[in-house]
Design a protein around this nucleic acid. Structure first.
Lengths: 226, 226, 226, 226
DNA sequence: AATGAATGAGGGTTCATTCAT
DNA sequence: TATGAATGAACCCTCATTCAT
């Protein structure tokens, strides 16, 4: 079966490994084979959606405005995507995936726990600073998108991230790098800290984010170091 | 246009002093004298709006749903308020004002700088923990509300807050309580940290917020102490 | 509470007693009090909907065309009715109710079973013949309307009708008016017979329906008489 | 436009002799020669359309859903058929043709008029009972399909059927089998009667149709017998 | 002080059909 | 022979706001 517009009906918003976005894995649900054109269009639309959300906010994002931004007709969007939900989820998952790839590389390159924590926070903030629009869009969507039933669509997506950082903190404690504290609680705090700083930058980019990174790294360092 | 009707057209969303919510001050724009009934209605509607935003999110909030929640006719809302914007701004400013009152009391009761920082964070989180719906509504509106032109309506509302905390940190440094750091940068970080923790609690209230407060206080303490 | 457009949200498409249309009774669900204007508008819209369905068929009926027929704006419709479904159900139930009133009067006026059968069929066909558009609309909607889940919305609405006619037939058998047959099966056949004749008239009104009534009465008479 | 493409543009929905479906005969419009593949594809699509109409109703039938049911691309449909109308007409005409073949065989095997009437009704109902989906689809389409101008597409398709049955009835009267009545009127009634019973079975198949056939035959027998 | 009525703009989505390959 | 891509029209419905009463 290969029914053009029917195709997107079958597929889950494909995402590679990703600690937050973990999709219920379905081995039978192989990703649809897409033509070059289709992949290009989908990328174009997701990109346009990202820009619109970043500029106009979640509530200001409509298919009409995405189409306008992409300079295509609204029908092109509904042809290539099942619905608006699919697009918004892709905006989040694709960007998150890219960020995670970058971060995990930097983290794994470090040997000490404190080095890994710094790499984690530093590379995360750097990455987001380099992709402000995508970050804004992701934030907006995660904060606002809901399931048809009304519950937040992206709740509880961050436990795996907390788990991973907790492990690093615990190793740091065993190795004597870090003082004694509740690793899980502090992992949450550190991640939320970074989010918070990003959030303030999100609403007001007058302070250049990259300039704040050293201060944050220093802050966290003092907070957890023995 | 009736007299009561005209009245709401003129007035600024009355708010006491408030470092974040500072309205463009207009000495000529004396607050409108409102009847008891009018004040009661406005309070009822703001309260209903708060609940709706907390439950359904910013994008899910409509005048119809606010009216339904308040068990009044939609027209009552448009009679007592100029437009939706006025209501949402009041949800934010009124709640922020109440929070600021609580916090400033606790902060001023402390003599040392570190005591004031702890009082600040602790009382802020406590207050929000006690008023989850209001906090959720405020967060949603601040993150989403836009001017008619499309720019965030609540950008740059936090500089005064940062200023106040910066002052405390600087005093702590002068008094030898805190180590050397960029006071303004760290003030921002601390405030964003608290916001971040609140944000994680907002999307997932399984972890009781009050239980996380000591950990956060401890975290900040170590981060800034000499 | 009395929120204008919210009002229709609460109410079931009101219908008096009616053997087919029997609504799940909810004693708490008192019918909404409607203003004169509202009742007039609703009647106007239901009437326009009836005409549109009769002329263009179920699939050709849209809110836009109903609005056009009623010479009002589309928004007026969505203001006075919850949705299209409510309108279509009213087209059916109101007309059926009126028909049932007429028929039951004629039936009860007869003393013999065979008189009642003739009164039933005759008055039913007469009534429909007098209200061709309403009958066509009712037929179209009953044949086509579905629940959101996809099952026919008006299935099983006719068992009570069959029950009532069955009773008459059985009495006729006890009284020696009718020959021996399966009363329930024949009741179904008679009712379907009348429906069938109506159906042929529905698609082709060249044959005047009232002229066919005596033939049908005669036909049924011979079929069931001793 | 390709050759194959052009082909379907020219052709009338081929149908053998059929008293109801009689197409405006055009001696010049010889049926298009179709390849084996084309014939197979067309049959497959008509079959899928039949199922979709039976399940989802006329208004719920779209080319997309037909394609989905047939597990082919939507374009395959528009390639092999000029438009949706052609498919729906074929669903009706092909099925009617098959039914007519079956019926006429049974009718011609009978010698008496009453035998022929019974054979007519009995074999018709039997045939439909054996092909419920096709019958439902045919009913839905005949009741709903319209010309582009909005008038019923299948109005007046039954006069030939009535003519044929009228002839049988008249012969029965001449032969003394049947009592005196208006043959044409009764022919219509009988046919509509059968349709009505089928219609009740269509919306509610809990009563097994074949079990009702004897009752209907008996009913008609008494109605017309001397 | 209150509200029922109305409305135009815009929301996301489905649809049959056209066209180039 | 087949189909992916595209599209404009139409669909029902929600919305904030205006107006007359």
């Amino acid at each position: 079966m290969s029914a053009g517009d029917a195709r997107s009906r079958k597929r889950a918003p494909g995402a590679a490994y990703d600690p937050r976005m973990a999709e219920r894995p379905d081995p039978n649900d192989h990703p649809p084979r897409r033509s070059f054109i289709e992949r290009a269009r989908r990328a174009q639309i997701v990109e346009a959606a990202t820009q619109v959300v970043a500029e106009l906010g979640y509530a200001g994002t409509s298919l009409a405005r995405i189409a306008e931004k992409a300079e295509i007709s609204k029908s092109v969007i509904t042809y290539h995507f099942e619905n608006k939900d699919e697009i918004l989820r892709l905006v989040v998952s694709q960007f998150f995936e890219r960020g995670w790839e970058r971060m995990s590389g930097h983290v794994e390159a470090e040997s000490t726990a404190s080095g890994q924590v710094r790499a984690w926070i530093g590379s995360q903030l750097e990455f987001y600073a380099e992709h402000r629009a995508e970050f804004l869009a992701m934030s907006q969507i995660m904060a606002n998108h809901r399931t048809p039933e009304g519950s937040p669509a992206f709740a509880g997506e961050l436990t795996e991230e907390v788990d991973a950082l907790t492990e690093i903190l615990q190793r740091g404690q065993r190795d004597g790098e870090f003082r004694d504290f509740d690793a899980r609680g502090v992992a949450t705090i550190i991640l939320r800290c970074a989010d918070g700083v990003l959030g303030s930058w999100a609403v007001d980019d007058s302070t250049r984010l990259v300039d704040q990174i050293p201060a944050l790294l220093d802050f966290v360092d003092h907070a957890i170091r023995r």
